[in-house]
Design a protein around this nucleic acid. Structure first.
Lengths: 196, 196
DNA sequence: AAAACAATAGACTGACTGGTCTACTTTAAG
DNA sequence: CTTAAAGTAGACCAGTCAGTCTATTGTTTT
């Protein structure tokens, strides 16, 4: 009734195409073609392209949050090491996709937040959820005396997330993870440091 | 023959619309309508939409570089203060446009670098030019003993530019300059500091 | 077995896309 | 004054877009 294999195929194909080409540049017919589903099915499961886009976002966000929890809330690993692993995973993904996709949520935030408030709100929520994961990890690091937070954990989490998203964007343009490496280097060298 | 008032009108209207809606979401007819120019003129001055898009980028980049030079190479002002002013100007612009446009080059880099190598290369060049302006300003700051650069000026410039772009993107989604403020705060508090 | 509903199937629609075409007007040169 | 070119004007084209429609097939429920 709700969660069908066809529906899943549509969302997965959509996520892939939208990651590569963006939302506006991805036509419904293209999604249909790549997964061999007729149009009737599409409009059976989704009321509109926007509805579909929101489902793609939701699916991606849920999956991504799972890996985020696995990485950032791994209590067997020191908090700063968890962050290092998160960045390393991001870099690896960037290599895997040939510097082509980057972060779906960041991409869509850029493309759609000026176009539709519905999308903006949905994407914003995803980001806020992610930010909370970072806040928790930073608080852990602080509690263990690994870092001194001179503003607030929230401000620092915002700094890290926005900086990382910016680095991803630049990496996509440059077709090189260099900006991501620079970001990590300076972050760990000068920002995530214990009190002097 | 080349630089005509009609051509300028087209580029200006195009820049405005593309800033607000993105490249793909901006139709040629929409540009034509907002500036009252017939289609015949458009294809007289530009060979295609891509050609037009590149002209918009070039125009924007040139203008932006002028203000960048004015701000970052103002030798009457200490280097770090120049940077502060640059960020303040960016925040002001974000307010002026109601958190709607952000940075045209960043937007297009996001939207088009996966779609067209021509665009990617053009946008990349613009970013590299900007980065050089920051490198120079950071070297000035280093020479005056205002900051200690623990990596290279190039890496630090990359860090600043990507972080700032990320903050702008987030500000657009959040409809608030808060992420930009966080970025500035932590940057000046922990990264752009003299040697201990 | 029959009725009810979920799902598949794809032809079709009107609006809009980037781009072309021809005709007309203005400007400048010979 | 004539003529060629630059620029203006918009009707028009094929293709694509999101979305609709009707018809058919599967699967339950009664």
């Amino acid at each position: 009734m709700k969660n069908n294999a066809t529906r899943d195929k549509l969302i997965d194909s959509g996520a892939q195409l939208i990651s590569q080409q963006g939302y506006n540049a991805t036509g419904i017919n293209a999604v249909l073609k790549t997964c061999g589903v007729p149009k009737g099915s599409f409009y059976h499961y989704f009321s509109s392209k926007e509805d579909f886009g929101l489902a793609v976002i939701e699916r991606f966000a849920t999956r991504y949050d799972e890996t985020l929890v696995a990485l950032l809330e791994d209590n067997d690993t020191p908090p700063l090491e968890r962050l290092r692993r998160y960045f390393a995973a991001g870099r690896e993904h960037m290599h895997e996709c040939n510097h082509a996709t980057g972060c779906l949520i960041g991409n869509l935030g850029q493309e759609l937040s000026g176009q539709s408030d519905t999308f903006r709100d949905a994407l914003n929520l995803v980001f806020q959820r992610w930010e909370q994961r970072f806040v928790q990890c930073l608080k852990d690091a602080q509690a263990q005396g690994d870092i001194a937070i001179r503003t607030t954990p929230e401000a620092l989490a915002s700094f890290i997330l926005t900086g990382w998203e910016g680095a991803i964007l630049r990496a996509k343009m440059l077709k090189s993870v260099e900006p991501m490496v620079h970001f990590e280097t300076i972050l760990f060298q000068q920002v995530l440091v214990p009190s002097p």
